[in-house]
Write a protein that binds this DNA or RNA. Structure first.
Lengths: 347, 347
DNA sequence: TTGTACGCGTTATCAC
DNA sequence: GTGATAACGCGTACAA
C-alpha cells in the first residue's frame, strides 16, 4: 500500500484531514477519543507525513547542510559524528558533502544544498570560498550559517573557533621546557585549500610569540610549509633533516602532518623524542594509539559539533534573528611520549 | 530578494511559468530567443528550483539515505567519502546518519529517513536490524536498498560484500608461511552490534579452514572474541598473552582490533613481529602509518562506495525493477612489517 | 470540537 | 512555440 496520505486515513476514520493533521502535529484541540482513533489508523496504515509537501507549505526544510573539507581527516570526522547525533536527536537530517580539499567542489556542494532547501548550514574547515558563501547568504538570508575553524568577514555567519594562538604558544613552550633549543615548525598552507583556516595563521603566530618571549630569533629555515596532510608532513620533515644544523624539536600545525613527520623520522633511522621531540595539534584518536604516543593539543571536537547543533536550533527559534555568534574554544596540551625528552642531554 | 520562483522570472520575461520550467529543465521545444532571455533572467535573479515542490510533484526525492554504524572507523569513512563524491556528482544529496553501533539508533535513523522521502538507501555495516529494514521495504517498496558488508534475507535488498572467507584464509596462510605455529584469532562479536556483519562469520571461517588445511587442530583458547573496536582488541590480546602457552601470531578480524592488540603487546613489553606476528583486516590508512606497519587484508573501500552509487542509479533508472544484486568483491593481502617474522627462529 | 477551501512552487497535459 | 490550468500532500485560516 504505497503513499498513504492524510486523506486516506481521514476517510478511514470518518474525520477531516484537518483533524488528522492536528493529531499528527500534536495540536491540543482534538478530543481524546478521535485522537486515539486517528493514532491507531496512522500506525496501522503506516502513514508518514510527506516532508516535501510539508516543506513546501512551511517554506522551510528539515535538512541541515554540512560541508566538510576532508572526511578522512579524523579531526573532521569526529565533528561530523557529534553533529550527526545532535541533529538526528533534534529530528533533523544531515546533508553531507565532502569537498575534498577543493574550493570548486565546495562551491558546487553549496549550490546543491541551496536547491535542497536546507534549513541551516555548517561548514567545517576551509571548504567554501568567501565569495560563494556571500552569494549564498544573499539568496538564503534566513538560513543560519555556522563555520567551524574558519572565519568569514560575512556578518551573518557565526563561527566556532579554537584559540590556536594560545595553544601553539603552549606547545612551543612545552618543547622549550623539555630542553629543546632549535624548535622547528611545520605550518599549514599559505595558499590554496586550507589556507583560510582559522588555526593556520594562529598556530604560526603562537609559535612565533613563544619564541620571541623566550628571546629566540626565529630562524626562517626552521619554518616549513605543509598542507595539513600526512604526505606534506613527511616532506617537510625530510627538508628539516637535510639542514646543516637540524632542529631538536618540531611542532606540526596538525596531527596528520606530525604523523607524516614521524614517518620521515623513522625513515631516516631517527626516533622521537630521542633525536627530535615532536608535538602535533588536534589530538586525533590515532595520536594516542601509535608509538611513540604523539604529544598534541587536544581540540574539543565533540564540543564543536554539539555547539554547532545547539547554536543552529537557537538561531532557528529566533525567527527574525540574525545575531551571528563568535565562540572561541580552547585546546589543551596532552603530553605523550613524543615530546618526553630525557632532560639534561642537550647542549 | 528571497524566494525567487518560476512566477517571478516568468513575469519578468513576459512568458508563462510553463516556458520557464521548460527552459530550466532543458526541454527541446523552446525557441532559442526566449530560451536565452529566460536563462539570463534566471541567472540575474538567482533562481533555484525548489526541490520540495519538485519532489512533491514528481513523488520522488533527491536525497539518498546513508546509515553507517561508526563514522569514526576509517574503514567506513572511506566508503562514505567515495559515496559522497559519486552521489554529489550525480546531483543527489546524501543524508547521513551515524548509528553509533546501536541498532536502536539505526532504527530511529531509518524512521527519520522514511519521513525524509529518500530516493535510495545505503546501509554500511551492521546498523539496522533485519526487522526494521523489512518494515521499511514494505512501506517504501520502490526505494532501492543497498547493504554494504552485511547481508539481509530480504529479497529486495542488494548487497555489496567482500569475500572475507578467502581473505582470512590467505591471511592465516601468510602467517603460517612466515613460520608461525600457534596462530590465534581475535574475532568479531557473536552477539549485539556488528555480529550480523558479513565479514564477521566469514573471517572466522577462513581462519578455521586454513588451519584445517594445514592439519592443525584449532585450539579454542586461541580464539578470542572482540567487538571490532580498538579497546576490545587490546583486551583480547591481554587474554592471549596470559595463556600458559601463548600464540606466536595473531590474526585480528579488523584493523582497529589489530591496533588495539598491538598496543597491548607494547604494554607487555613485547613487539610485533619479533614476539608475535600480527595481521589485521581492512587496510585503514593508519595501518600503513604506524610502526611497525600493519600487515592486513585491503578492502576495496572506494570501489564499494562507487559501486553503491552506480548500482543505485541503475536501479533508479529501471523504473519497475526490483532486481536486487549481490556483488562480491575481494580483499588483497598487503604485507607490512608486523608479520615479517625473521624466518628460521622458530621451534 | 470539527470540516472546507485555499495556496505553497513545480511539472505535465492540453489547448491555442 | 507558447500559455492556462490541474494536480502533488500538507498546513491552516475561517466557517460551522
Amino acid at each position: 500500500m504505497p503513499h498513504v496520505t492524510l486523506h486516506d486515513i481521514a476517510r478511514r476514520c470518518n474525520v477531516s484531514i484537518a483533524t488528522v493533521s492536528a493529531v499528527v502535529n500534536e495540536a491540543e484541540w482534538v478530543s481524546q477519543k478521535t485522537r486515539s482513533r486517528v493514532q491507531r489508523a496512522v500506525a496501522e496504515m503506516g502513514y508518514h507525513p510527506n516532508q516535501y509537501a510539508r516543506g513546501l507549505k512551511q517554506r522551510q526544510g528539515h535538512a541541515v547542510g554540512v560541508i566538510v573539507s576532508d572526511l578522512t581527516n579524523p579531526f573532521f570526522t569526529q565533528i561530523v559524528r557529534s553533529l550527526s547525533h545532535a541533529l538526528n536527536a533534534a529530528g533533523r537530517s544531515l546533508s553531507l558533502c565532502d569537498s575534498d580539499h577543493q574550493h570548486l567542489l565546495g562551491e558546487s556542494n553549496l549550490r546543491m544544498l541551496v536547491e535542497g532547501q536546507i534549513v541551516g548550514l555548517v561548514i567545517i574547515g576551509d571548504s567554501v570560498p568567501e565569495k560563494a558563501l556571500e552569494a549564498f547568504v544573499r539568496v538564503r538570508a534566513r538560513v543560519p550559517v555556522i563555520s567551524i575553524e574558519r572565519e568569514y568577514t560575512i556578518p551573518q555567519v557565526s563561527s566556532l573557533l579554537v584559540d590556536s594562538e594560545r595553544a601553539a604558544y603552549a606547545a612551543t613552550r612545552h618543547l622549550h621546557d623539555r630542553g629543546c633549543e632549535r624548535i622547528a615548525m611545520i605550518t599549514g598552507p599559505s595558499a590554496g585549500a586550507g589556507s583560510a583556516t582559522f588555526g593556520r595563521v594562529q598556530r604560526h603566530e603562537g609559535y612565533r610569540r613563544a619564541l620571541a618571549d623566550l628571546g629566540r630569533a626565529s630562524d626562517p629555515r626552521l619554518v616549513v610549509e605543509g598542507n595539513f596532510r600526512f604526505e606534506s608532513g613527511r616532506t617537510a620533515m625530510r627538508r628539516l633533516l637535510a639542514l646543516d644544523q637540524r632542529p631538536d624539536a618540531v611542532f606540526a600545525a596538525n596531527d596528520m602532518m606530525a604523523l607524516g613527520a614521524l614517518s620521515a623520522l623513522r625513515e631516516a633511522g631517527l626516533s622521537a623524542p630521542d633525536d627530535i621531540a615532536l608535538v602535533g595539534f588536534d589530538n586525533v584518536p590515532m595520536a594516542g594509539l601509535i608509538a611513540p604516543g604523539l604529544t598534541t593539543m587536544a581540540m574539543p571536537m565533540a564540543e564543536l559539533g554539539d555547539e554547532a547543533a545547539r547554536l543552529l536550533e537557537t538561531q532557528l527559534s529566533h525567527k527574525g534573528g540574525h545575531e551571528a555568534v563568535r565562540h572561541v574554544f580552547s585546546a589543551e596540551l596532552v603530553v605523550r611520549e613524543s615530546s618526553l625528552r630525557p632532560v639534561g642531554v642537550l647542549a
